[in-house]
Structure formats: C-alpha cells, structure tokens
C-alpha cells in the first residue's frame, strides 16, 4: 500500500492540503489592490470588503484550471469564496 503526500498533485483534492495554493492566489489578488495586510484562512474577504465580487471570477478560473471544478454543473454560491477555508471546503465537497 502506498502513502500519498498531501501535496502530491495526484492526490485527490479532498485529501490534499489545498490552502497554500489558495492563499497564493488570494495574496496576488490583494497585492494587485495594494493591500499588503496579512489575512487568516477564516477571514471573510468578500464580506470584509478586502476582495470584490469581481475578484471571485479570478478564483473561479483558478479552481477550474487547477482543480478541474465545473461550475456550470454545480450550484454556484459566491459565499464559497469568502475565505480560504470556505474555498478549501468547496473543493473537498
């Protein structure tokens, strides 16, 4: 029996540690706005006003490209993008 590492790209999303990749894309979006303040994984970024609803599309495209999520076939709720933890939960559903 082989043990897969949580960061191995062949490991299914529900078993991988997805937060570093998600943190990176959120960091890039915040940096682009000139917002250099650190953020926590549970911090509400949309309702807190640090990210805008239009930024959600960057996150959508990231999840589509990097994780193969197809939002045309599953319910879309912008609330799922409010924090890094929520995005991870979305990927692991």
């Amino acid at each position: 029996m082989t043990t897969r590492h949580r960061n191995d790209p062949h490991t299914p999303d529900r078993e991988r540690d997805l937060r570093p990749g998600l943190r990176l894309i959120v960091r890039q979006l915040l940096d682009a706005k000139g917002d250099r303040t650190p953020f926590g994984d549970d911090e509400p970024l949309l309702t807190g006003g640090r990210l805008e609803s239009v930024d959600v599309i960057e996150l959508v495209m990231h999840l589509e490209q990097a994780h193969g999520v197809d939002f045309s076939t599953r319910a879309f709720d912008p609330d799922d993008f409010d924090s890094v933890a929520r995005m991870e939960a979305l990927l692991q559903r």
Binding site: S53, V54, V60, S72, F76
Partner: peptide
C-alpha cells in the same frame, strides 16, 4: 448586476 447578470453569464 454582478450577482444577477455577471456570474450567470461568466459561468455559462
């Protein structure tokens, strides 16, 4: 406008 028009168009 984002919630009712942008997201649906973008996702489809």
């Amino acid at each position: 406008l984002v919630d009712f028009f942008f997201y649906p168009a973008f996702l489809r």
